[in-house]
Amino acid sequence: MDLSIIIVNYCTYDLTKNTLISLLDTIKEIDYEIIVVDNASPDDSLEKLVDDFGNEELIQFIRSDINGGFAYANNIGFSKSCGDYILLLNSDVVVKEETINASLDYIKKHENIGALGCKVSLPDGSLDKACRRSFPTFKVSFYRMTGLSKLFPNSKRFNQYNLSYMDDNGTYPIDCIVGAYMLIPRKIFIECDGLDESYFMYGEDIELCYNIKELGYDVVYYGSHEVIHYKGGSGKNKKLLYAFHKSMAIFYDKHYKKEDNFLINIITHLSIWTLYYLKLIISHL
């Protein structure tokens, strides 16, 4: 089989339904399967999806007994998959015509690609900046958190995090793509031991890209084809806000804590958690 598409559902019936429709409408002449893993949704979204798509032979539905997070659910989906390539796809993404066919064709022709991401746009047509990033080193994060990246959006020095000086429609190697659309050869996903489940939500895509590059493979932004990301479809709440900032701390400690001096470590953690509490206060206001 060419491709296994893994989608995690958590109380996102309407969004997941639109994602599945877009897949069935746009994928052409590929031997593929779709695996929907429900992350113990407390609503009836899984049952409704089964009612809608239960007769589709290409779609398999799996219910997790617990909500172990995004990485956890994707790893369950992978364990049931058989495709030579794995596409991690968010439940709040709508795929455009030819995107998956073109992505799969491109990665097959370039054997050193360990992960491929496409152009990810928001519903208003703007670029979802998370779809192409550099790893959040202290320097890269400092320029972003101090606002220098916004002041100098076309600067290679100050805007390493979101790479806004690069062509949105181009194709080039970068550090990191977003887990909303991530195409990976099966053998490389196995080499990386799947997604790191110490990340509940957010950060697992950066961790996977880091591991892929450590193995010597390229991570590529493929901007000539597009998906639409209805970002935040699974909801925004205190738990997710905490998970996002915790993921930042986990990634830093894993990969940069030993390299940076004690003072940088303190500044980094203070910055992460100060930002968290500020956002928490703003959300109450």
Rank of each mutant, 00 (worst) to 15 (best):
E204N: 10
E57V: 13
I177A: 06
D2G: 01
T26Q: 11
C192D: 04
A73W: 01
S126E: 14
L58V: 11
G77R: 00
G179E: 13
K279I: 00
S271V: 04
K238Q: 12
I86Q: 08
N211D: 04
S22C: 06
E214C: 06
L46Y: 09
V220H: 05
F200L: 13
G125Y: 13
G83F: 06
L163K: 11
I86S: 10
I100D: 02
I27M: 03
P153Y: 11
M145V: 13
L24T: 02
Y210A: 04
I228S: 12
I86V: 12
C176K: 11
K238L: 11
L275R: 11
C176M: 13
N261R: 08
L104G: 09
I59P: 04
I190D: 10
D51T: 05
D65H: 08
I113L: 08
E29Y: 12
P136N: 09
I264N: 02
A71F: 05
M182D: 04
L3M: 04
S22V: 03
F135M: 08
F158V: 04
K108W: 09
K156V: 08
G114L: 08
V120R: 08
R144G: 01
L263M: 14
S155K: 05
A115F: 03
P42G: 07
I174C: 15
K239H: 10
Y10I: 04
S91D: 15
L163P: 04
I264P: 00
S164C: 06
V36C: 12
I62K: 12
Y72W: 12
E207T: 06
A102D: 14
E214P: 00
K258M: 10
V50F: 03
E111K: 13
V219S: 02
N74T: 10
D14L: 10
M248P: 03
L104V: 12
I27L: 04
L280S: 10
I59Y: 01
L88D: 05
V95G: 07
L280T: 08
N112W: 03
Y165W: 15
Y222N: 09
G170A: 05
F251K: 04
N75T: 01
T12L: 07
T16R: 04
V220Q: 01
G216N: 12
G233D: 06
L3H: 01
I282H: 06
R157A: 02
E56L: 02
F70T: 09
T16L: 03
I212C: 08
C176H: 05
N162C: 07
I177Y: 00
G83L: 09
A180R: 12
E57S: 12
H284D: 08
Y276V: 03
L116A: 12
F53L: 04
I264E: 01
F189E: 02
C209P: 07
F158E: 01
I62G: 01
Y217F: 15
G147R: 00
Y202G: 04
S103Y: 09
I272L: 03
E56N: 14
I174E: 07
K139I: 12
E197Q: 13
I188N: 05
I113W: 08
C192R: 11
Y72D: 15
S283W: 09
N237M: 00
I62F: 14
Q60K: 15
E29T: 05
D65S: 14
H284K: 13
A180F: 06
T19E: 07
P173Q: 07
K213I: 05
V220E: 02
Y277D: 05
L285P: 01
E214V: 10
